[in-house]
Design a binder for these strands. Structure first.
Lengths: 114, 114
DNA sequence: TCTAATGTTCTATGTGCAACGAACATCGAA
DNA sequence: TTCGATGTTCGTTGCACATAGAACATTAGA
């Protein structure tokens, strides 16, 4: 039973957040999640080994960027938009716009759920 | 003759920028420089060894965050606000607000010039 | 109950970075 | 020219991370 706890809202620190988002693959994951909808682990399609993807999702979760929900053997990930917007107003939209404009994270795509 | 070249505007990448700003001391330096005015190297007062401060300024410079001008043996640093604002609209203001609200980088202060 | 699917964790490797002190290079001033 | 100030670079240390493969745990299904 893995510990999928996300930090409390006030425990999200700016340096940690920025560190989590300084990786292109993680920025790509955030881009996929940016519409607010939940995605299954398996829907996240990145050109890395699954152990590496698991690592990235852990980084994002522990930095407070995402929330992970477990259901059976499957995991579902969402962006913690409300929390991030409340704590760092304007930051996430600016980051997403910048990532899109700069083609950062485009190697992470979404696979259709089956 | 150290190479104080900053990257061309288009060579500034988002991941590198975020990596540069994921360190509290470097965020503090950016905060001090945030009014746009130039500061002398010696005016930047951070609780680290001078070799470490030099390292941080190099990171910021190579990520495209700052520009360093040399005059004799002295160096002067400025924030590249125009370039950053043009390339990543809204990002820098959001980051600065977040840093201020979160008390990140307050250990970096400004010493009076003599 | 056996099997396949789903993620996590473990182990290992290479890389990069924050930190320091010491040595160095450069330039201005005496 | 000698000295002091100013930063940079070098050598080192310790730690964190990106990456992969292999082993593992858990659960759904057959």
């Amino acid at each position: 039973m893995p510990d999928h706890t996300s930090p409390a809202d006030t425990e999200i620190t700016l340096p940690r957040l920025l560190g989590a988002l300084s990786d292109p693959t993680r920025l790509g994951i955030v881009r996929v999640l940016s519409d607010g909808a939940e995605r299954g682990w398996g829907q996240l399609c990145a050109p890395v080994a699954k152990s590496t993807l698991s690592h990235h999702l852990k980084m994002l979760r522990e930095a407070g960027v995402t929330r992970t929900r477990q259901e059976g053997t499957r995991c579902y990930v969402t962006l913690r938009r409300e929390v991030l917007d409340a704590r760092f107003p304007g930051l996430l939209p600016a980051l997403l716009s910048a990532a899109v404009a700069d083609h950062v994270g485009e190697h992470v795509t979404e696979r259709e759920a089956m």
